[in-house]
Write a protein that binds this DNA or RNA. Structure first.
Length: 271
DNA sequence: GCCCAATGTCGAC
DNA sequence: TCGACCTTGGGCA
C-alpha cells in the first residue's frame, strides 16, 4: 500500500471521519497504551502528511507520528466498531466511525519540535507542490550525485513520498535508464520528472491506487488482454518482470538495487 | 501448518 | 551490505 499518495489520502480520510471530534483513543495491542490514555477524549484538530509520514494533531500541540513501513495497514469502518483484533496498534472511535492501524513501523506521540525535525530531514514532496515543496532542492542533490537516479528517487532526503512503484514507473515514462547517475540528469529532464510525479501522485490520492499507463498504451488501445496484475493499478513495468513491454514488446527486466526490486525495459530505457 | 514476499527504513559492521 | 522490525495473504504440503 504505502507510497506517498496513500499517506496523503489517509490524512484526508482521518480528517473526514474524526477532525473536530473527540474520539476514544485506544491501543488494543498495548504498544501505544500510555499515549492513547493521554489523548483519549481530546479533539483531533488537524492531520498532515509529508512524504510517507502521517501526523495526527490533537488539541493544540500533541501529534501522533505514524509511519506504515512496508506492512502497515489502516482500516476504516462505521460505528459501532467491532471488537478489535490483538494486532491493532491504534484505534480511534467516535459516534459515527472507527479506524484501526496495524503493523506500523512508527506510532508515537511527539512534540512540535520533534515533528519539525522530521520535516527537516525530508526532501520536497510532490504532493505538497502547491504549498512548500521546492523541486530545485531535489535537483541540487541529484545533479551533484554519482548515485543512480533509481536510488536517488527512493531517498526520502532527496524526494519525499516516492516509493518502488512510482520510481520504476516515472523512469519508464521518461525513458530514463535507472542506472544513469544523478549528475547526468539534465535540468529539463528533472523538471519533466517532477511535473509528472505531481500529476501521477495527485491522481493516486484521488483514486487510492497507482495508475501510470497513458491512454494510448492501455490494453484497449493496444489491442491486448486486460491486465492480470494484482497490486491494484495499471502500470508499465512494476512487477512485470519477463513480461512484454506495453510499448515496444521487449522483455521487462528486474534486478536488485539497494535491497529493493527494480523493474525497467532495457529497450525503451537505453543507457 | 510453513515459507515467502510485500508499495519501507534504520542501525550495526 | 546485511539483518531486524512490523503484519498479512498466497502458494504449497
Amino acid at each position: 500500500m504505502p507510497e506517498g499518495h496513500t499517506i496523503h489520502r489517509l490524512a484526508q480520510d482521518y480528517a473526514a471521519a474524526f477532525q473536530g471530534t473527540k474520539p476514544l483513543v485506544t491501543s488494543p495491542q498495548g504498544k501505544f497504551s500510555d499515549a492513547a490514555e493521554l489523548l483519549t477524549g481530546s479533539e483531533l484538530t488537524r492531520t498532515e502528511a509529508h512524504g510517507k509520514h502521517l501526523f495526527l494533531g490533537f488539541r493544540a500541540t500533541d501529534w501522533i507520528h505514524i509511519h506504515l513501513g512496508l506492512f502497515g495497514k489502516v482500516t476504516f469502518g462505521g460505528a459501532p466498531a467491532p471488537p478489535p483484533t490483538d494486532t491493532v496498534r491504534l484505534r480511534l472511535a467516535n459516534s459515527t466511525a472507527y479506524v484501526d492501524l496495524r503493523g506500523p513501523t512508527t506510532c508515537a506521540l511527539i512534540t512540535p519540535a520533534e515533528k519539525q525535525a522530521i520535516h527537516d530531514r525530508l526532501g520536497p514532496d510532490p504532493l505538497r507542490a502547491d504549498t512548500d515543496a521546492d523541486p530545485q532542492a531535489a535537483y541540487r542533490r541529484i545533479s551533484r550525485s554519482r548515485t543512480t537516479i533509481a536510488a536517488l528517487l527512493m531517498d526520502q532526503k532527496v524526494v519525499a513520498g516516492v516509493g518502488n512503484v512510482y520510481r520504476a514507473e516515472v523512469l519508464f515514462r521518461h525513458r530514463i535508464d535507472p542506472y544513469r547517475a544523478g549528475k547526468d540528469i539534465a535540468p529539463v529532464e528533472w523538471d519533466a520528472i517532477w511535473t509528472d510525479l505531481v500529476g501521477l501522485m495527485r491522481e493516486g490520492v484521488r483514486n487510492n491506487r497507482i495508475d501510470t499507463v497513458r491512454p494510448e498504451h492501455t490494453p484497449e488501445a493496444m489491442g491486448r488482454p486486460p491486465r492480470v496484475d494484482d497490486h491494484g493499478g495499471e502500470v508499465y513495468v512494476y512487477r512485470r518482470a519477463n513480461l512484454p513491454c506495453h510499448v515496444c514488446g521487449g522483455e521487462i527486466r528486474t534486478a536488485d538495487l539497494a535491497a529493493r526490486n527494480l523493474f525497467w525495459c532495457p529497450n525503451c530505457q537505453k543507457p
